[in-house]
Amino acid sequence: MPVTVLFAAKSERWEEYEAPLRTALAEKGVTADLVTEAAPETVDYIVYAPNSGLDDFRPYTRLKAVLNLWAGVEDVVGNPTLRVPLARMVDDEGLTQGMVEWVTGHVLRHHLGMDRHILGQDGLWRTGAPPLAFDRRVTILGLGALGAACGQALARLGFPVTGWSRSPKQVEGIDCLAGPEGLDAALARADILVLLLPLTPETDTLMDAARLAQLPRGAVLINPGRGALIEDEALIAALDADHLAHATLDVFREEPLPPEHPFWPHPKITVTPHIASETRAPSAARVIAENIRRAEAGAPMLHLVDREKGY
């Protein structure tokens, strides 16, 4: 008997995902009715985007799991009507590769001082080569799949990489720290700081004025993680005081970032429109299909969210 898989996301996403999902489910041997509308009591799985408008899961009495299309689950994990397993989008090679490319590109941009030459085409001969990678310390806050992959890519380029996570982890090529004392040490050695933490009550506004002050003078902050990890006003103050040299931001508390927001005109802030990475339909479809295959076979599902941790 086929399982019913409801695709609950924006309509334009259906056009992008329909064929890859059908292909991936077939390749995994899952017989499924893949639909965008169904009687709630007939639905076995929901492929879900938090901006879909679906926020009451109580009518879905046969539901076995919700498969999030995004890596972030902060908009759904606290939903009291969701009582079935919730899986994050992890190990999507497209999502990971996109983040690695964006983070590596912007770390290298700041490391090499590329803005100085790209924007300084004014006839002045600006001398002075940048330091080599092994003289520029990079810290990554967040050692999940994305943080670990970015850290290892930078380590392969020769950067000394420190990674921090709430609980202890070991990642080859990265000096891994954990806990409050580990956070202090990780910030103190961050010539370039990359934020790739999930948004939870513990990480909301993690980078406030006190923690920004722990960064070395002249440090650069890069945030492709979650906008609410940073206290906006404190970041602007740290830049205006020349404690931080620059901030490159891809995520924001409000998106799209309003035209009147002070980040836009600030000379030490680069705004990119949440393009660091995104879920790619072909690779994400394979992750979703594998989880449905596992659930139907009675095997443990992958990438399940810990409700207490929030990710």
Rank of each mutant, 00 (worst) to 15 (best):
P2A: 15
F7P: 02
A8N: 07
K10G: 09
W14Q: 01
E16P: 00
Y17Q: 07
L21R: 02
T23E: 14
L34Q: 08
T36I: 13
A39H: 14
E41R: 12
V47M: 12
A49G: 14
S52R: 09
R58N: 10
P59V: 13
N68S: 15
W70F: 14
W70K: 12
D75K: 15
V76C: 06
T81P: 02
L82E: 02
V84H: 04
P85L: 12
R88I: 12
M89H: 12
D92I: 00
D92G: 11
T96R: 10
T96K: 11
Q97W: 05
V100Y: 02
V100D: 03
W102S: 05
V103Y: 02
H111M: 00
G113W: 01
D115G: 11
I118A: 13
L119G: 11
P130W: 04
P130H: 11
P131I: 05
P131D: 13
L132D: 06
R137Q: 15
V138K: 01
V138M: 00
G142W: 08
A148V: 11
A149V: 05
Q152K: 13
L154S: 00
V161N: 05
W164H: 05
W164V: 09
S167P: 09
E172D: 15
E172G: 10
I174C: 09
D175M: 11
G179S: 10
D184S: 14
R189V: 07
L193M: 08
L193Y: 01
P201F: 06
A209S: 15
A213C: 13
R217Y: 05
R217C: 12
G218C: 05
G218T: 08
G218M: 02
I222K: 07
P224S: 14
L229D: 03
I230M: 04
D232F: 02
A234Y: 02
I236M: 07
L244M: 07
A245T: 02
H246E: 12
A247R: 01
V251E: 01
R253E: 10
E254Q: 14
E254G: 01
E254C: 00
P259W: 09
E260F: 05
H261Q: 00
H261M: 00
P265G: 04
V271G: 05
P273L: 04
S277Y: 06
E278P: 03
E278M: 14
E278L: 14
R286P: 00
E290D: 15
E290K: 08
R294Y: 06
A295H: 11
A299N: 06
A299P: 01
A299K: 13
P300H: 12
L302H: 09
V305M: 12
K309R: 15
